[in-house]
Structures are given as C-alpha cells and as structure tokens.
Design a protein around this nucleic acid. Sequence first.
DNA 1: CCTTAACTCCTTTTT
DNA 2: GGAGTTAAGG
Length: 662
Amino acid sequence: VSPRFQKELNPEQLAAVLHKSGPAIVIAGAGSGKTRMLTYRVAYLIENNTPASAIILVTFTKKAAQEMENRVQGLVGSEIKGLKAGTFHHLANITLRRYGKLLHFDPNFTIMDPGDQKHFMKYILGQRFDPEERKRFPKPTQVLDMHSKTINLGKPLSEISSVYYPAYLYQIVDITDTISIFTKQKKANNTMDFDDLLVFFLKFIRNEKVAAKYLDRIHHVLVDEYQDMNAIQADIVEHLGKHAKSITIVGDDAQAIYKFRGGDFNHMLNFPKVFENCQTYKLETNYRSTPEILKLANASIRKNQVGFKKELRTTRESGNLPMMIPCTNLYQEAQLICQQVLQHREEDIHLHEQAVLFRAHYHTMELEQELVRQKIPYVIRAGVRFFEQAHIKDLVAYLAVLVNPTDRIQWIRIFSMHEGVSDSGASKIITILSQQPQVLTNFVYCNLVQEMQGSRLRQAGLENLTQLQQFFKQLAFHPGTKQRLSEEELPNLPQMIEKVSQYLKPMFPARYPKNYEDRLRDLRELMNFGAKYNSITAFLADILTQYNLQGETILEGDQTLEESPLVLSTIHQAKGLEWKVVYIISLVDGRLPSARAIGDEAEIEEERRLFYVACTRAKDVLYLTYPEIVQRFDRDQISGPSRFLEEIEKEKVFEEVEVEEE
DNA sequence: CCTTAACTCCTTTTT
DNA sequence: GGAGTTAAGG
Ligand SMILES: Nc1ncnc2c1ncn2[C@@H]1O[C@H](COP(=O)(O)OP(=O)(O)OP(=O)(O)O)[C@@H](O)[C@H]1O
C-alpha cells in the first residue's frame, strides 16, 4: 500500500479499503469518512490491476458518482476509463440499451417521467371506466403509487392495498387488470418508467445465461448509502454481488431517510444473512463536526427506539454550542438568516460554504424573497425540475418521437399543443396512425382530413397539423422521398433543438402568456446543454436519469456570478454533503416533523433521522431556527418549537439566543 | 369537439 | 397558492 493510504486513512478505513474478497459491510456513522473509504477502495483496486470497467460503484445521485470518480482520478493520477459509477437507474439504463436485444426489446426505448406516467394512466382509466366508475376508482397517481410500491417494497398488490389503500381493497381485481394493461401498453409503446428500468435490469441479471457476458465482466461491486435500499435494489445487489470477487456495501442506519420510496435499513441489517461469511467493518470516528454539534446530533438520535446504538468519537476541537433562535414569524426568520449569512461572509466564510436546509421546498418562500431583496446570490436544490417543466417537455417530445415513434404520450403532447386539437382529439389521431407500422412516416405522408373522417375533429386543428407534417418532413426525411434520415444523418443535437425551438416559438405566447420569454430562453439553454451529446437517445435518457436537477438552472456552478452562491437545499438533497455553517429552518411541528408524520411513531423516527442528517452536515456552526407563527393557507397558526428541539432541551446541547430587534 | 372560466382540492421528501 | 377538474358557451 502506498504511504499515502496509510496517512490519509485511519486503521478502520484502511482495513475496509484493503478488504480482500467476498462480502463486506461497512457500518459507518455520519462524517466518519465512508465516502473517502469508498473512493480509496476503488483507487486501490485499480492500482492493483483491476480494470476500471470491472468495478461497479453504485451511488445515490449522479453528483455523488461524479465527485467520487473525480477523486479516484486524483488518487490514481491518470484518467480512468469505463468505471461503472452511478445510480441504479443510470446503470440500468446504460446496460439495458446495450443488452436490450437479448431481452427482445428495442434499445431505443424512451423513458417516461412521472408526468408522462400520469397522463398515460389517465388515458387508460378513461378508456376502461365511465365517469361514474372513475369517481369510485383510485386516482391515476394512486394506482401508480400502488404499483410502484409493489415493486419497491417487493410485496403483492393485495398487501399494498390493504396497508396503504384499504378503501380500495374491494376493487383489487380491477386495479390489477388496469396495471397489467398499463404494463402491456408501455411495452407496446416501447417506453419505460423509472421503476421499469430496475425491473428489467433485475430480470436481465437474474437470467445468468443471458447476462453471462455482462456479469462475467464485473469483479467488484461497491454500494453507497445502503441504509436507503429498497427491495428491488437489494435484489439487484444480491444478483450483482453473487458472482463478483468482492462486494462492499456501506451505510448508516441512522441516516435512512427514503422510506417513502421503499427504502428500508433492514436490507442493510440483513446483508450478512444474504451474503454468508460477510466481514463487518465499523467507522466510528467523526472527522467533520465540532464536538458540540455532534453531541446535539447524538442526543437527538438517541430518542429513536429503532436502530443501532452507536456513539461517534470526535476528532475536532471544541467550538460553539449550536444556537437555537426563535423568531416571531417567517419574515423575521428570513431576515435573521440573511443577516447571519452576511455576517459570516464578513468573517470570510464564503456563501457557498454555508447552507440553509429545510424539509420541503415551500418552506423557503419567505427566505427566497428576502435573499432576492438583499441581492444575496443563492442556488436552490429543491422544487421544480428543469426537465419536467412544460415548455422543456414540449421540445423534448419532438426529439422523442424521432427515436421512438411509438411513444404515444409524446405524440399526444405534440398534437394537442396545436390550436384546435385537444388531448382527446390527439389521442384519436395517434390511435389511427398506430394501426400501421412507421408511425412517423404515416403521419407525415397521410391525408389527415381523409384519415380522420368520421371522427368529428375540428377543421382548424387539422389544418394546423399539416404544418406539423411539413415540419417533420423537412426535419427527418430525405428530400422528396419517404426515406427517413438515420440518426447519423440528422442534424446535430443543438441544431435539432434550434429547429424545434423555431417551430415552437409562434405557439409560445398563447401557450404561456405569462412568461413565454423566460421559457424561450430556457430552450436556448437547452440547446447549449445539448451540445454535449451526439446521440438523441442518450440525451433523452440522461436528462431524466442523470440531469433531472431541481432548481432554476441546468448549468450549475457555471453562472456568471462573481461569487459562488449560498446553498438552499432540502435535507434529502443534502445527503453526503457538508458545509462550514448550516442553518436548519422552520423547526416547528408540522414542518419538521412533517404534519403527515405526526401520530405515527415510525414516521416520526424517520423525521428524526432527517433532523439528524441535517445537523451532521455542519462542520463548524449550526443554527436551529423556527417561527412562532406560521401561515397555513389563509390562516395564521401558532406553533411552539419542533418536538425535536424540545425533547433535547434539558440536555443543554444548544443555547437559546434572542433575535436582536433592529 | 374545443376552449375558457369558475371552482375545488391539498400541499414532503426523489431516481 | 397553484394545479387539476367541471360546466357552460362557441
Ligand atoms: N481519515 C481521515 N482523516 C481526516 N479526515 C477525514 C478522514 N476521513 C474522512 N475525513 C474527512 O471527514 C469528512 C467526512 O468524510 P466523508 O464525507 O467521507 O464522510 P461520510 O461518512 O461519507 O459522511 P456522511 O455519512 O455524514 O455523509 C470529510 O471532510 C473528509 O475529508
């Protein structure tokens, strides 16, 4: 081992890095250097002649994957190629496109986002039930949620229904049928939703003969954030790890915060049973936070009944007690945060070394207003996702049907954005066009008026669609022929985006009267983003599985700001990150813990883990603030501090500070 | 059939 | 407060 490893890792970390073969579980507390351990292990494996492409490193977000890859690169000192790093969804996407043929599907499948899924389910329900029946039947999102839970929890629909939707239990047969139609139609349209990526990936690696070529190439598997695995992910890990030389999983049960999508830290606790002769490593030295911050976090998490008891050792020197600051209302809280942020900036703690953390996006409304007013630059990692905005989806739909003309939902979006064509009209058109293969060619060369005779579609609408026919004809066909341009013959991606933008432009003022200029600007931004890609398919997949970022922009860190901005983030998004100064805001019952969790002890424990994660992001300074009055709809509501503050008050792990009145 | 405008619901967290 | 739904009018 190089001396560098000896120097930069503690003995426990080093042992895990050097783990020889077979299964290993690393149980690690917050800030104990598990990310570091993982990156060093990858580097160690590569330096010892494992090809990078034989290593799978599963992370929770794209960002984590990228950062770890960079750090491995730094350690190895040369460019590493082919490392399979990313989220399950990303790895599944890549693998399924490469090996899709073995599973007998077209690797040009398009991925449905939740909005598309909802549209699709709505359409199916509309087909199957009349309006009266619809009222009694679960809503589209509920059907989808049930279905998703069966996959992510690995339980049958009957059980999901009786636990989460008992009121609909009596309709289980209809629900089952609906879901099976949904599944069939997705297949017919060659589309997959997020869950499908995992389902088909699992199906693939389960079939060891078919997947032999893929599986044989994987020598080492490493999985981060194992406490948040759900059933299907744990299943995937099992199948990936079974034949690998080593499998290393890392997690902290105190940081499990994804129960809502099936995450269950019992998968981590069960790992040694699933993988026999598993070696256990423990990392219990915290390098991140001051002892005061750690003491507060430990005091809080101790209130949870479920979970390992572990005490983290500190290494850092003593700092200040965390500060708890009551504010009269949300505006005062916002002002207080701004004031403290600026004060720390005076002390040379840059804005980007400070973060404001919260439970839900809408908790930041007042703060954002105040930041804008005071011209404090910030980025927000919460809220609307760039690629799920209507105008972006408008454009993306045109690209999608070029690579996958069977994607019904995209066609409906395209048709119905033309004046005089509604959702239902669009749906009829695509149904007729789909009766023959080559949907795109059909559409471009058909006589719409003739085809749609008998269906009472508006004349004006059909006329508008002839323009669309012209547009696709020029965009995607050899001039004067019915011959499609191949993907290589099409213009490059930015040019395509430009052309579609030009086509969309005249529709925007009517479609988006309030802010069409902003939206057109986004399309230009999209064009710049598209320059990175030479394949439409890869672009379409990546924007959902890799770059579906929340917040205003897709070019994070690339702004023309003079100063790197303050970070506003949900606690979920803050996972794995750290800042010198952390502010946790809106610490009232109903916000953290969330109103929905109140009354259910297991949910409250999940919220407490969220609070724990939030606190342990702080290196030097931690603020805990709450408003005494919160507006809810149109009412004011008086609230005391969050139970998470009250329950540790006696332990004197924070000091209460008054707001200085101006 | 399609659009518009009034009306109603219910607010988490994410790949 | 904003999106989704419904009912009337074109
Ligand atoms: N052996 C070490 N010596 C000194 N500093 C270390 C060591 N290991 C990790 N650190 C530092 O401690 C901090 C936390 O490390 P890291 O992010 O790897 O922890 P983690 O276990 O992933 O944290 P969390 O689970 O809370 O996200 C980082 O700033 C890292 O540089």
